[in-house]
Amino acid sequence: MNKILLTCYLVFALFGLTACSGTEPNQIENVQVPPVSVQLWSVKDAIEKDFKGTLKQLADMGFQGVEFAGNYGEFSDNPQGLKEYLNSLGLKASGAHVGFDGLRGEKLTPTLNFLKALEIEMVIVPMDSRAWSPDGVESLVAELTELSTKLAKQGMLIGYHNHDREFDPYQNLTFWDYIAKNTPQNVLLQLDVGWVNFADKDAIEYVKRYAGRTLATHIKIRNYHGPDRTPQQASPIIGEDQYDWASLIKTQAAVGGTRWLVLEQEEYPDGLSSMQAVKKSKLGLDKIISTL
């Protein structure tokens, strides 16, 4: 067994994962689909108006988990109360997006204590401009590496979530490759498929390239950006687009060590509200999953 595969298997043993880069093709066809969560940024307007009611509606849509994005509603000082409310809805906290500012200095311990009370294991940095800066990416890597050690002592994982700029060229590969290759195996890589596709890269290839590290994935179609990027033309509703979600999900389950599929909706077509768009994408994703 080569060194990379050995490292992969050791990480799986430590964190309870079940796949590795040596997965055979027939294993990809016989996989257990991970549960489905929703990134609460998708419905940030609804969350602001009615936190508890929005969570109930999401549970009624069939979501099994929620990924937090900094808003904990009336439970901002009561994580135990939030955990009890999630339990009453049959929801789990699949993870949380937390900026570096909340993970530095005196803020680190209270942040982790709050998340631990919610039984969150995956703490994911949503964005940092150093990730696509030749002058900043090394300090980003160093901070992720330091946090990986600190969080491991708490039974938790640090991770990073991409946008499209992380796939800009860097040192003959991309910034994303640099981050992956220069952080420990226990730094999770949360692929946002919408942004990967927008950057004209292959999400399936990246799941395979960094086996066991795609523990949570954002299921999303992204169509627009600023003036420096060319808009794409596809429905942002999952299942109405042309992307091969089935192959991606199979690869994630067999190779990525994926624990959660996290639906994220950032575009709301045809006058749909955020909740209506999320519901349509959830139905589309359910239909895809039913074929696996």
Rank of each mutant, 00 (worst) to 15 (best):
D241A: 07
V125Y: 05
I179A: 06
G62L: 07
E146Q: 15
G95K: 03
I204L: 01
R130G: 03
R209D: 14
D45W: 03
G271N: 01
T149S: 12
E146K: 15
P35H: 08
S129W: 03
T214D: 00
A117Q: 02
L5N: 04
W195F: 03
N71I: 01
N71F: 00
P35K: 04
D202W: 11
N71R: 06
A180F: 04
N172C: 14
S133R: 06
V262C: 02
L108Q: 08
I4M: 09
V141W: 00
Q190L: 08
I47Q: 03
K280P: 05
V255N: 06
L5Y: 02
S76F: 13
T145C: 06
E29C: 11
L10E: 05
C8G: 09
P25L: 12
K279T: 12
S133D: 15
S21A: 01
A199N: 07
W132A: 08
I288A: 02
V11E: 04
G159V: 09
K49E: 06
E240M: 09
P126S: 14
Q32D: 12
E48C: 08
A234N: 13
L261F: 06
V207P: 00
N26D: 10
V262I: 07
D244Q: 13
P79C: 12
R222W: 15
P227K: 13
E74H: 12
V33D: 00
T7W: 08
S281C: 13
N87D: 15
E240P: 09
D164N: 13
I28E: 01
F198C: 04
L115Y: 05
K279V: 04
V98Y: 01
A277V: 03
Y178Q: 11
M1Y: 14
H97P: 10
E166W: 09
D228Y: 12
N113K: 15
R259G: 02
T174Q: 10
K56C: 10
I221G: 07
Y72C: 02
A131I: 06
P79G: 12
D177S: 14
R165M: 08
Y170S: 10
L58W: 05
D164R: 02
I289M: 04
